[in-house]
Amino acid sequence: MGTTERTAMIITAATALLTLTLSLLYRFTDLPLWPRRRRGSERPAVDWGSAPDLPAYSYAALYELAVRRRDALARAVRCARDAGLPVPEPLTVNLVETRGQDGPQEGAYAALALSAADDFLEDCLPPDTVPTAEQLAEFEQRAGRPYDRRAEEGIALTDVVGSLEVSRIGMQALACLTEGTALTLDRPCFHHPLHARGTERVLCPPEACTAESPEDALVDDDFVTVCRNCADGTPAPLLVWTQAGEVPYYRTEFETKAVFRTSGYGAAALEWDADDLLRAFVEWPTFEVDHGDGNGNGNGDGDDNDRTEATA
């Protein structure tokens, strides 16, 4: 063996030893082998509280919180996928097949919740946008009335609250998925989904059950969940600004938001499970559920009078 070959073997052995050491350290330890971007410390803290400490529940503050929660849920879903947990891609979730499938469905629920949160925020008016003159003219021509920023934000407020609620459901689903437990809905307060959670059950408020059309009526529950404060004292409903002033969200008549007043964000549909509620949020207005059999299976073979469906 010549000098050149011997030198080549020494270099080969040295580089192989160094590479193997680095690769095993990378595989089995968390030692920082090269400078990393500090992503973790830059992640903004997210308030997941049921009743976030926000000034007067302003639209801008709620919108910002909804975006933060949606982003946190998106990051958690991505991490769960990277960690090998069964979380399908939102576009591949077959809503019809989620029920009755083998294995935990909480991953699919998290993906559905993220999809719903995305949809709700997509419909919302970002608080810092200023419509152009062309957009204002188009709006007036379409709506037949002058553009009213506050009224538009009032319409969007129900979507923002919906996004806040489904983001919570998505995080709960992921928590259940990691713990190996089944997701049980933690229902909000019917009067205001941003109150404490609905731990009390009361009769459905009469003003919420007087829709003009039977299709707009609440689902046929007699009871809704409310927070302790609303159960003990005067309820403080989520007020939405409309052309006629502030009204509770369950008295608005925006057809595209019928799912919120119908379900009370989950508080008025006590027989719905997570699958029903997320399907309603994602698939509305084509979602149909039959309450004739009283078990909320949504098989759609019941009497038309018992059917609640979107009118949008």
């Binding site: 803290a45 997210v46 308030d47 997941w48 509280g49 049921s50 009743a51 007067a56 946190a72 919570r168 995080m171 709960q172 928590a175 933690d186 307060c189 205001h192 109150h195 404490a196 959670r197 731990t199 927070c227 302790r228 404060n229 609303c230 004292g233 005067t234 309820p235 403080a236 409903p237 007020l239 409309t242 006629a244 002033g245 502030e246 009204v247 509770p248 008295r251 608005t252 008549e253």
Partner: peptide, 25 residues
Amino acid sequence: EFERTGATAGTPSPAPASPAPSAEA
């Protein structure tokens, strides 16, 4: 973070600040 700040159901709801609704939709 979710467990710490949001998973508990005992968060007190804010005191009712808004007056009862007076207008219809």
